[in-house]
Write a protein that binds this DNA or RNA. Structure first.
Lengths: 332, 332
DNA sequence: TCTCGGTGTGAGAATATGTTCACTGCACTC
DNA sequence: GAGTGCAGTGAACATATTCTCACACCGAGA
């Protein structure tokens, strides 16, 4: 019982978990003030305060804001049917984009918490939306899940949004292993790419990602604020050109599509190290996350590729997508 | 969408649920202060504060203190095997008896929330432990569940602990119907009892309770603080005598047993209006709740009757019961 | 139309909470 | 064995939250 692997719950600087639970329970359920607790447990108030913060950070105390499903069970069914996906996770609208992203991320986190059991593997993409999911997990770690990068790294993306970093955070939060794809996300030419694909380390990780049970991917639009630009893969001019050519967004950060879900030719396809469109399509639950209200057209395109199983987005987006779908449905 | 039955979520004094959810989310997840919220939503600080309280009271915001299962998964399995029950819910220990009762009640509430789906019926017993469950339900109402009194009323029990009142609270919290057993819990003689059993109203309710999917019952010990005494069913002297005669406790408040789980003859059996021992045994999930650390012997007796499917109690009790079981197991 | 409960509101006081900061003890280094 | 750095502590302060209370608004009834 003592030497178990995983997060150590037994020593929290002399305070036992049982005590911590007792304190948290009294505070959150019995409305005992921190002052009173400091008396009962002979600790200073600040210490109680810190312990409570810690209890929250560790997922011992979980605060959850429910969204009564009345928000749109009907709409949800309709949407799921319309696009042939398995599941739609809709967040209420938030004015603040960060709040919006986190709200959507929490829905995904809750879905993961329900779905993930020991032994499963998750392929992890990149971007702010995926990164937010890692921060949104709240329950105490349970372990046994492997998180694998679905794409290589990029220095320009910044620590926080790189798949390997997200993987590690997910693994730390959820409990389990993380596996980095040791390759750059973008290489200069197809030859180098082929070379890397033959490399054992790269191959092994990619193969594992291909066999994942769940994939966590973002959907990007080609805005000035998008990953593409921030990572330097695209200049603002190139974006403008691509948009004119009909490119509306991307999945996973590098698979460009138009609003009909057709692949857009950007000449980048041959230079990315990561899961291909076909790889992705074979993963049983591809969860696409896109919170921003500017992304509706890109999401629509992504939905039309047929690769997505679960879509997590905002209420507004759901409406916009349905309207856009009406307006842009190809007549046959 | 507007005239749906069930709890009205749409009007909360002009503030829409969506807004409330947005506020709650910002407060609990994004750490926006109430002051800042009051500015963003153009309301006074106190109003924000009240809205947040309301969100908690309505189960829109749920705060949950987890008990890492490492506390005793192994012990749990052993206990379940030993007594042939389906499930053991163990709460961490609390010094304060009220806190202890509530902690156990919350486990039961969580179990109910997982188990109960629309269409199910719950037979409800009496006592503080059962009453606490009603207060421990936190999620927003879902409806469709019927709560039926498993025993008549008693004025001496006090409003709060009578089964009908508990039923109504459960129904209000969980959403659903409640059905009162319109009869006194205790009658003066067997004849009157037979008479009541023939009464249509009484018969109907009792029959419904008999067919319940789940029963929620307390286990009592014969202490001076017990229900029996407070309800005036027993005088302190009678208690002393009963104890000497081997009676160790009760299930449902009136079914007296010794530590081997054998029925104790108190002459009260013929005067109670409520589910019989046999009725109870037929209910698929009988949940016995007993938080107090004085109740270990009574719980052991109750377990040995074989009527219990789920036991909810404290960590300390679990240990005491196992020790007591060792010490008092009948040799054969 | 006026008056009267009821309900909901915001100012401000009273509390409770969080945060900073200097201090202590401990482990590890030189 | 003294020096150094680190983590953890509580005093005091700054901030946030809740509570109390008086007032305004609304609808019902005289």
């Amino acid at each position: 019982m003592k030497g178990l692997p995983g997060p150590r719950y037994q020593d929290r600087g002399e305070v036992r978990v049982e005590t911590l639970i007792e304190i948290a329970t009294l505070y959150y359920y019995e409305d005992v003030t921190q002052e009173e607790l400091s008396r009962r447990f002979s600790m200073s108030r600040p210490k109680i305060s810190r312990l409570l913060q810690r209890a929250r950070a560790d997922g011992l105390v979980e605060i959850r804001v429910h969204q009564p499903s009345s928000v749109g069970a009907e709409l949800e069914r309709f949407f799921v049917d319309r696009f042939g996906i398995d599941r739609l996770l809709v967040s209420v609208d938030h004015r603040d984009p960060d709040a919006q992203r986190n709200a959507v991320a929490r829905l995904v986190a809750a879905h993961l918490e329900k779905t993930l059991v020991a032994g499963k593997t998750v392929a992890v993409g990149m971007g702010r939306n995926v990164a937010a999911v890692a921060d949104a997990l709240v329950t105490p770690p349970r372990g046994g899940v492997t998180f694998v990068c679905a794409i290589g790294g990029s220095l320009r993306a910044g620590e926080y949004m790189n798949p390997d970093h997200i993987c590690r955070r997910l693994a730390a939060r959820y409990g389990g292993e993380s596996e980095t794809l040791y390759a750059p996300a973008l290489v200069t030419n197809t030859m180098l790419r082929e070379e890397l694909y033959r490399n054992d380390t790269v191959k092994q990780t990619l193969d594992r990602a291909r066999r994942a049970d769940i994939a966590l991917i973002g959907i990007g639009d080609l805005s000035e604020d998008s990953n593409m630009v921030r990572m330097g893969w695209f200049s603002p001019q190139e974006i403008a050109e691509a948009r004119l050519a009909g490119t509306i967004g991307d999945t996973m950060g590098y698979d460009f599509i138009d609003i009909q879900g057709r692949p857009a030719n950007t000449g980048m396809q041959g230079r990315v190290i990561g899961l291909s469109r076909e790889d992705l399509a074979r993963i049983p639950d591809v969860i696409a996350i896109a919170a921003e209200n500017t992304k509706a057209p890109a999401i629509l395109g992504a939905l039309r590729t047929g690769a997505i199983n679960t879509l997590a987005t905002s209420f507004t987006n759901v409406h916009t997508i349905l309207r856009l779908d009406e307006a842009t449905r190809p007549r046959d």
